[in-house]
């Protein structure tokens, strides 16, 4: 947690719930951000890392700008997600699945790839919904708004070197 910018502000939380109230997906979360902070204080590590809340975060930053204590809540959510992946603790593999699939594409090609992303993610996690989404993908193709093949950047070797080094340094930090 200490690596999160502004994380040390968590002990300023007054449990007002402006985060949980502001969250567009707050109604779907098992614990609201406020409750997560209370659980963090209570050392309930597993309950925190198993929560679906960070994965339902849409990065809209409402909680961050509205927090009366200026806690960087969205950034804390990112940290919780990476901690959950490292600890292997999440109740639904589909949630980190999207992030990981996305990261895979970025690490292979340097760009994201919508068609691959959507199909691979859905194949693995929601095979039944794939057929339902097909018209959308087809529509995108028809309108020239989607590629059939991913584009690989030229500096892939450079990017890989940078990312590998960053991950090595990140490992060292934690």
């Amino acid at each position: 947690m200490s690596a999160t910018p502004g994380d040390n502000r968590l002990n300023l939380c007054i449990q007002c719930g402006s985060c949980g109230g502001s969250c567009p997906s707050g109604a779907e979360m098992d614990h609201t951000p406020r409750r997560l902070f209370a659980l963090i204080r209570a050392d309930a590590r597993e309950a925190v890392l198993r929560s679906n809340a960070p994965w339902y975060c849409v990065s809209c930053y409402y909680c961050t700008v509205r927090c009366p204590q200026e806690i960087h809540i969205t950034d804390v959510m990112y940290t919780l997600k990476s901690m959950a992946i490292k600890a292997g603790l999440f109740h639904d593999a589909a949630l980190p699945g999207f992030s990981e699939t996305f990261v895979d594409y970025v690490e292979k090609y340097g760009r994201s790839f919508e068609l691959g992303l959507a199909t691979r993610f859905n194949l693995r996690h929601h095979p039944l919904s794939l057929a339902g989404m097909a018209p959308l993908g087809l529509g995108m193709l028809k309108r020239g708004r989607m590629d059939l093949t991913p584009h690989r950047i030229d500096g892939m070797a450079q990017l890989t070197a940078i990312l590998d080094k960053a991950k090595a340094l990140e490992g060292g930090l934690q």
């Binding site: 990476s82 992030s99 970025v106 960053a166 991950k167 990140e170 930090l173």
Partner: peptide
């Protein structure tokens, strides 16, 4: 290269900034 959207940050924080 891709900025990582909101996803890369969720997996590797420092690497996301490097990206």
């Amino acid at each position: 290269n891709c900025c990582g959207a909101t996803e890369y940050m969720s997996v590797h924080r420092v690497a996301a900034h490097a990206l």
